[in-house]
């Protein structure tokens, strides 16, 4: 019992796929909350959030205000980084690799190349392999998820429809991804080549998913989660965790709702706990019916 085991490291490498994907593995089972200032970040941390997403306006306000939505002010991001001990994520516009460079230089722990912001490039996403900071990207289906992973994304979130408080699109996209994965599981090797072509995704990734029965990175759900039951629903449907954007800080009692959503995410398979968590939460965010949204205002259509 007296000998201390010795450990030596050989040639440390930063920013490898394993390191980046491993970061997301740590977040599993957790809730990632949108926050716009240090005070909200503290509320999120105290409620048990596993990370916060620093942004200037929550998606509901981006919808309301219109105009071009961009990366947040570096001061605001740094204040949030300084205020909490949980990881801090921030959003860059799709294809805006300079915003991503800036976010990396600020020391954020994860970059969300997000359709919630106005795309900067309508053809190309950023080359995410070029960064040591890991990226999370949205996807509405398996092909889209695998294209993002091919570009270097280390975590995927189903897109849903951010800022609506309506979970219908989140359900649609998560089910779509899970169904397509299940289908791949049934394919033999001959069929995987055609499947890759159909999915417009690299064959190697398609084969990996077929073997694993899951994405090679962590899959969260986002876009429209507003209640504890919504969060538990996404977990029961197979999401490994949830992003909650406008749902918390556009509601009547953010601290209480944040804690309730965390609890329902942990005890996602226990209706009694979810019921208790759902009591007296005050007003939920108002919400938007997604079928009344004009095509141009559907964020999920951004990215390809």
């Amino acid at each position: 019992m007296s000998t201390t085991p010795s450990t030596t490291f050989q040639s440390p490498e930063t920013g490898t796929a394993r390191v980046k994907r491993g970061m997301a593995e740590q977040l599993k089972g957790g809730v990632i909350m949108d926050v716009v200032n240090a005070e909200q970040a503290k509320i999120a941390e105290d409620a048990g959030a596993v990370a916060v997403m620093a942004l200037e306006r929550v998606p509901a306000d981006i919808r309301k205000d219109g105009g071009v939505a961009r990366m947040s002010d570096p001061n605001m991001i740094e204040e949030i980084i300084g205020a909490v001990s949980i990881p801090v994520m921030a959003k860059s516009r799709i294809g805006h690799f300079v915003e991503a460079q800036v976010l990396q230089s600020l020391g954020v722990d994860y970059i969300d190349e997000s359709e919630v912001l106005t795309p900067a490039d309508e053809i190309n996403h950023s080359d995410k392999w070029a960064f040591t900071t890991p990226f999370v990207c949205g996807a509405t289906n398996l092909g889209e998820a695998l294209r993002r992973i091919a570009e270097g994304a280390a975590m995927i979130r189903s897109k849903g429809e951010a800022g609506t408080g309506n979970v219908v699109e989140a359900v649609r996209h998560l089910r779509q991804i899970k169904n397509e994965i299940a289908k791949l599981r049934g394919f033999d090797n001959n069929e995987l080549f055609a499947a890759a072509k159909e999915l417009r995704a690299p064959y190697e990734l398609v084969k990996e998913v077929a073997e694993l029965g899951k994405l090679p990175v962590v899959l969260f759900s986002a876009g429209g989660v507003a209640t504890p039951a919504d969060a538990a629903l996404m977990r029961q449907l197979g999401a490994e965790g949830v992003f909650v954007g406008s749902g918390i800080f556009k509601s009547g009692d953010p601290a209480k709702r944040a804690a309730a959503i965390v609890k329902a995410t942990t005890f996602y398979d226990d209706p009694k706990v979810i019921a208790d968590a759902s009591r007296n939460l005050g007003e939920a965010m108002v919400g938007i019916n997604c079928d009344t949204l004009p095509e141009s205002e559907r964020y999920a259509n951004r990215g390809w």
Binding site: F9, P12, E13, T16, R18, V19, D109
Partner: peptide
């Protein structure tokens, strides 16, 4: 922070095969 995380080969006394780990 996350940017500083790395992976490397690790040799530990008492474990036969070197392994990869990240820290």
């Amino acid at each position: 922070r996350q940017n500083d995380s790395f992976e490397a080969g690790v040799t530990v006394t008492g474990i036969d095969t070197p392994s990869r780990a990240s820290s």
